[in-house]
Write a protein that binds this DNA or RNA. Structure first.
Length: 244
DNA sequence: GCGACAG
DNA sequence: ATCTTGTCGC
């Protein structure tokens, strides 16, 4: 259901991984507005790790953008294919995330990643990478500012401030709840920054983090527990919400 | 050279 | 990310 137009690279070293990023970076599309917030479907993706057992579980949860109800979900489990290196997070998460997206019974629509897109040392974070590989519109919503700087946005939900790499705006610090630490939104692929911010606000009616990542986070943790408990169980699981 | 550093 | 109970507050 999510056909990659570009083969998945599996670099063995950090140097190779950086080269892959430098090569794919040009394919990012930044001049499309992206789907309008509040309509269609929005999918959250996230992963959970068990480095001891060499396991990574990914989840993709599709929500109706208007109601935020779960439409479908899928998970995938695989081996940890890359260590955590700041700036190379995508190589650790993408293989299993792609498997989960492929297991979905319907198109994902906009994909919301737990991390960065443009806000990245080489301007090619997880959300950008996933977008280029799948061709889907993507955005990144991170919980921390990484190495970037920002001035604290006003206290009211909806306030924002530029997320800066020097003088370059690579994203936005967005307050999704009154007086609560902001989230850090950046563009992935085929979506505008203003639109990414609007989507993030539409996805946070009750909590600091988008409903998409909350749902995906809970699901991948469950998938990891179940994979740990049932060694020879199936490698992917798909569920379609009942039509009503 | 040292420290910081999305998840 | 992950290790982890209770607890303060709305």
């Amino acid at each position: 259901m999510t056909t990659p137009g570009i083969p998945l690279a599996r670099p063995a070293t950090e140097e190779e991984a950086r080269a892959v990023q430098d090569e794919l970076r040009d394919r990012v599309v930044l001049d499309e507005p992206g789907p309008p917030p509040g309509s269609g479907r929005v999918t959250g993706v996230d992963v959970a790790y068990d480095d001891e057992r060499d396991l990574v579980a990914a989840a993709a949860v599709v929500l109706d953008a208007a109601t935020l109800e779960v439409v479908a979900e899928a998970t995938a489990v695989g081996p940890v294919s890359f260590p955590y290196v700041p700036g190379l997070l995508a190589f650790r998460e993408i293989p299993t995330v792609l498997a989960a997206l492929d297991a979905l019974p319907c198109p994902p629509g906009l994909v919301v990643c737990d991390g960065y897109g443009l806000a990245h040392p080489r301007r090619f974070g997880l959300a950008s990478h996933l977008g280029v590989l799948t061709g889907l519109p993507t955005i990144g919503v991170a919980k921390n500012p990484f190495t970037f700087t920002y001035e604290d946005p006003a206290a009211a939900r909806g306030s924002s401030a530029p997320l800066l790499a020097g003088a370059e705006e690579v994203g936005r610090a967005l307050r999704t709840r009154d007086r609560v630490k902001p989230v850090f939104v950046s563009v992935g692929h085929r979506v505008t920054l203003d639109n990414a911010v609007a989507h993030t606000l539409a996805l946070t009616p009750a909590y600091r983090l988008p409903e998409t990542t909350r749902r995906a986070d809970a699901l991948c943790r469950r998938a990891l527990r179940e994979a740990t408990a049932a060694p020879a169980a199936q490698q992917t699981v798909t569920r379609q919400a009942p039509t009503s």
